[in-house]
Design a protein around this nucleic acid. Structure first.
Lengths: 211, 211
DNA sequence: GGTTTAACATACCATACGGTCGGTATGTGT
DNA sequence: ACACATACCGACCGTATGGTATGTTAAACC
């Protein structure tokens, strides 16, 4: 039950502002390098407010992962790639959409929960699990289309819809890693072209089909 | 010029022991969460020794990335996947090899420079660049085989050898991210199966060829 | 209208951190 | 023999860190 604050009722509650700050700062600096004071400064709240809303820094990490899951779920649900009638077209539109939103600064298009999980998977299992739920919850949204496309075309395969959905995520996450290491967003886009080609192959899309 | 130490001449110099400790601890906890004292304790050296060999913690990060590049280069150069006469077979053997070495604890098979780059890319450009050199230096070792395989088979493609080599790395790195998020090494292996299938497709490997 | 409660704010604390500094032991070249 | 360099030791320092204790304000509930 958030309540409008006196100083900035329009900017959202302190809790939301802290989560927004966490999203931006952790993506840029990593979780351990982001201090509680950093977050309070960015969100323009005091430490008292921070520890009122979150029991610890780790608890904020968990909350940030859930917040990421919520906001990205809404973002992808509202995205235009669901429009095509053919499920395979929706899958390819998804890949194209993922490629299209790779722009601007690296910290702005990369994945919070991927970064976070990679960093804290061994030392903060609760944060890791929250990240896992966000990632695999997202892959699950692709499975229905993959399965439908497979049935539509009578594809007999040694791969499952779950597996291909996860692979899609792996390519995206791996592209982010390369983009960061090479300091070049194009490296992330490049792998999505290979993924697109791979998916067309799995569903036997030929040159003639493309027209 | 390392010199045998009094207390443990057989364990290698303090510098090497610190770099080994850095490899293991940073992969498990991340760079920022790894303190200089952690490293000194694990390497059984004092803080004086640490700052004698490395000007700062960041300098150790850079050195660790170079050390990783050196040791992995030697490791992959000595690996058996170079044996096949056909370059395409070497490429597929590489993918199979990468899959085979995914075993044991997650921190033992994942990539130091991938983790490191992802964490510090924005705040420590020198570490990031060292990681980039390690990753892209490794992808370069695949390019010759990819190019040779393409020429051998007269493949006309809209992808380059460099691009496919980088995509291979992206799939591996992305698999590591998923393995960490899901706390399951199988997630990393799974994507390598898709990569294998994709490469066979690019080089027109049919079921009959496989025999 | 009084009490409770959520939502902050402020001052403070113990510790852990990266880094420094003066010193010592052990070669090494002349 | 002596100067010099390298490798290392360990006490110390200033600061930043996560976290706490106490206080304040204002809306919500009875």
């Amino acid at each position: 039950m958030p309540r409008p604050t006196k100083q900035s009722p329009e900017r959202g509650s302190a809790r939301t502002r802290l989560l927004d700050a966490a999203r931006d700062i952790i993506r840029a600096k990593g979780f351990a390098a982001t201090s509680v004071d950093d977050l309070c400064r960015a969100a323009d709240v005091t430490k008292g407010a921070f520890f009122h809303h979150f029991g610890s820094k780790d608890a904020l990490g968990v909350a940030a992962a859930y917040y990421w899951a919520e906001t990205t779920t809404a973002f992808f649900a509202a995205a235009p790639y669901h429009a095509p009638a053919d499920p395979l077209d929706r899958i390819l539109a998804y890949v194209a959409f993922r490629k299209a939103i790779i722009m601007g600064e690296i910290a702005e298009f990369t994945c919070l929960v991927g970064t976070l999980a990679q960093e804290v998977y061994a030392s903060a299992p609760d944060i890791r699990d929250a990240c896992g739920r966000s990632i695999f919850g997202h892959t699950a949204t692709l499975e229905a289309d993959i399965e439908a496309a497979r049935r539509d075309r009578g594809i007999i395969s040694d791969w499952t819809a779950e597996s291909l959905a996860r692979h899609t995520q792996a390519v995206i996450q791996g592209g982010f890693v390369l983009a960061k290491a090479g300091n070049d967003p194009e490296l992330a886009r490049e792998s999505l072209d290979h993924l697109d080609r791979y998916i067309r192959h799995l569903f036997h899309v030929t040159e003639e089909d493309a027209k």
